[in-house]
Design a protein around this nucleic acid. Structure first.
Lengths: 259, 259
DNA sequence: CGCGTGGTTGACACGGATCAATCGTGGTGG
DNA sequence: CCACCACGATTGATCCGTGTCAACCACGCG
C-alpha cells in the first residue's frame, strides 16, 4: 500500500492520534462567579446580560455531573427543564431497541442541549447521550417563565438562541436536499477550520469524535466518509493524518462546498 | 393507455381540477376586531393571549396587500420586521440569476413567515415569494422588543412559536437523512389528510400547489413524485384524480411513512 | 496472544437524478 | 372558432452517487 489514509497505519509507532474514545473531565470550577458569567455570556449571545440577571438564573440552576454514556435526554421523559451542556461532549440522536445509538448532531463545550423542546411542554423529539463525562445544568421551565415575567430583558437573548437554532437547521435541511456528500463534508470541514499562521490557504481541523459519528452528522455512512477523505486528499485539497486533517487549499474546498 | 394518473387526461371533459395557478383573494375583513383576535390566537398558540395584549400588537402592525409573485423576503434586505402571512399562500426558497425560483417550503393561511431571522439582526437565510395574492402583516422587531419589556407575558408564546419551528425543522432534517422518497411523501400526505366521514381508513388530500413545488418541498424531482403517485395508486393505497388524492388505506400509508 | 472496536477498501445493488420525448390543458391571436 | 404555443405532468432510458455487504487491517485491552 502507498500513503495510507488510515491514520492508524500511517503514524506507525508512538501514536499521536486523538483516541476515538471518551476523554476525562477535570474539575476546574474553583467557585469563581466570573466563570458563570462567562458561561452565560456565551450561551445567551451578544447582548451580554446584566450581572444581576445572571445571578438570578444561577439561582435556578441545578448542576449535575454525569459519566460518559449517560442518557441526558429521552423521548420517553417529558422535558420539564431547559438543559445546558456546561462541559463535555454530547450527541443528539436516537436510542433504539436493537441498534446501539444513532447520533444525528453532536455538541461540545458550553452549549444548549435542545433549547426548544422544553417550551413545547411535551417530550423531546430526540434522545441525547453524553459522549464524555459531562456537566449539565438544568433550569426548570416553569421557573424560567416566572423569571421572564419579572425580568423581561431575558426574553430577547432566549429568542435569539432559538432563532439561531432555526437558522442552523434551515441550512442543514437545505444542504441535505441540494448538496452532495462531498460538498456537505467540505462545508463541515470549513466550519471547524483553525487558521494556520502565515498561510491563508491552509488550516487545520482536529476531529474530536469518531469518524462514524461525523458521518452520521453528515447523513452518510462511515464508508462514504472514508472514501471522501481519500478522494479529497488525492486531489491535494487536504492531508489526513489520523484524526488530524490539514487543509491545503482552502479556496478550492470552499468552491466544492458551495457547489 | 389505461387508467391514466395524469389528472388532466383522466377527467376528460368538464375539468374539476384545481388549477395549478394562483387563486384570488377576496376581501372579508369587515373590520371586526374578533377576526384579529382569532388570527393572533392561532399564530401564538395555546395560551390564548389577553385581549389587551392583542390590541397592543395590532397597534404595531403595518398591513400590506401584495399581488401573487411578490418578493416577500429577500436575502439582500435585512429583516427589520417580523412578518406574518395573514392570507394567501407563499413559498420560502431561493431566487437565483438563471433559474426561475427554487421553492423549499411552502406556507398557507395564517402563519408566520420566517419568525426567526428578525431576531438575529442580519439578513434572512431564504427568500420568499407570494404564490397567490397575499396579505402580509409587518411588526417592527425593535417595537416588539420594546413591547416585550412592557408586556413580558408575550415572551412565552413567541418562544413557543420558535420552538415549534425548531421541532419541525429537526424532523425535516431527520427524514431527509433516514427516509426514502416514498416514506417522506407518504408522511406528507398523512399530514394533510382530511378525514372522510364513516371511513376510518380513507381520507382526501387536495393539492394546493403545483406538483413540482410539492416535489421541491420533499427534496425530490417532479419526475420522481409522478412515479411515486403512480406507484402508490398501483398498490391501491391512493387514488389520484388530478389535484385530488383520495387515500384508500390510511394505515398502510402510515406503515410506509414510518419505514 | 486473541479478541473487540474502528477504520479502510472493493464489489455490487439500488434509489433517484437527469435527459429527452410526448401528451393534455389553457391562453392567445389571427 | 381554430391553430398555435407555453407550461406542467407523465413516462421511459440511462447514469451516477451512495448504501450495503463482506473482507481485511491496525490498534488497544484483558
Amino acid at each position: 500500500m502507498d500513503t495510507n489514509i488510515a491514520s492508524n497505519a500511517a503514524v506507525g509507532r508512538r501514536t499521536v492520534l486523538r483516541p476515538p474514545r471518551q476523554r476525562f473531565v477535570g474539575a476546574d470550577e474553583g467557585g469563581a462567579n466570573g466563570a458563570a458569567r462567562a458561561l452565560w455570556g456565551s450561551l445567551l449571545g451578544l447582548p451580554v446580560p446584566a450581572a444581576a440577571l445572571i445571578d438570578e438564573l444561577q439561582a435556578l440552576v441545578t448542576a449535575r455531573d454525569l459519566p460518559a454514556g449517560s442518557l441526558l435526554l429521552s423521548r420517553q421523559r417529558p422535558a420539564h427543564e431547559l438543559l445546558v451542556l456546561a462541559q463535555g461532549d454530547a450527541a443528539l440522536g436516537f436510542v433504539q431497541e436493537g441498534a446501539p445509538f444513532q447520533p444525528e448532531r453532536s455538541l461540545q463545550g458550553p452549549d444548549w442541549l435542545d433549547p426548544a423542546s422544553a417550551w413545547l411542554g411535551g417530550t423531546p423529539a430526540q434522545d441525547a447521550i453524553a459522549l464524555s463525562d459531562v456537566r449539565v445544568l438544568a433550569l426548570p421551565v416553569a421557573e424560567v417563565q416566572a423569571l421572564l415575567l419579572r425580568r423581561p430583558e431575558l426574553a430577547a437573548p432566549l429568542l435569539h438562541v432559538l432563532a439561531q437554532q432555526v437558522r442552523q437547521l434551515t441550512t442543514v435541511a437545505h444542504d441535505l436536499m441540494h448538496k452532495d456528500a462531498e460538498a456537505r463534508f467540505s462545508d463541515w470541514l470549513i466550519q471547524r477550520c483553525v487558521a494556520v499562521p502565515d498561510a491563508p490557504e491552509q488550516a487545520v481541523v482536529t476531529l474530536h469524535e469518531r469518524k462514524r459519528d461525523i458521518a452520521a452528522q453528515l447523513g452518510i455512512t462511515p464508508e462514504t466518509l472514508s472514501r471522501l477523505l481519500r478522494q479529497l486528499s488525492r486531489k491535494g485539497l487536504i492531508e489526513v493524518r489520523g484524526y488530524t486533517v490539514s487543509v491545503q487549499d482552502l479556496s478550492a474546498l470552499r468552491a466544492i462546498a458551495s457547489a
